[in-house]
């Protein structure tokens, strides 16, 4: 659960960890039933649409202005977004 909380970037207190663990486990037990299904030779469906090769032409277009891009940020400085430095890339 601690690992899940870290991977999901959802800070939890240890009490919360226990509470969620119980619920998540219950749900996982329920979804276990999928192992009863015979899926040999079945291709997975990642999208219900049959489209292939959808692309767009390499034409640049105007996007947001700097002001629009920055306006919802908590902190900005000299046209840049600001965040407190973290020590390492979280996995």
């Amino acid at each position: 659960m601690a690992k899940l909380s870290r991977l999901s970037q959802l800070p939890l207190t240890s009490k919360e960890e226990d509470a969620y663990a119980a619920q998540v486990e219950e749900i996982l037990e329920y979804v276990e039933q999928l192992s009863k299904v015979d899926t040999s030779g079945v291709e997975p469906t990642f999208s219900p649409i049959d489209l292939k090769n959808v692309t767009r032409p390499d034409e640049p277009q105007a996007g947001l202005s700097q002001e629009e891009a920055l306006k919802d940020a908590r902190e900005v400085k000299n046209g840049l977004f600001v965040v407190k430095t973290i020590s390492s890339k979280s996995s």
Binding site: R56, D58, E59, P60, Q61, G63, L64, S65, Q66, A69, L70, N78, G79, L80, F81
Partner: peptide, 23 residues
């Protein structure tokens, strides 16, 4: 390329004012 990989923003970002090529 002239535009970005998944949107039409200009990909010519070098030396441009920050956060002016976004969508």
């Amino acid at each position: 390329t002239r535009s970005k990989m998944f949107c039409s923003c200009s990909a010519d970002y070098f030396g441009k004012e920050s956060n002016t090529h976004t969508c």
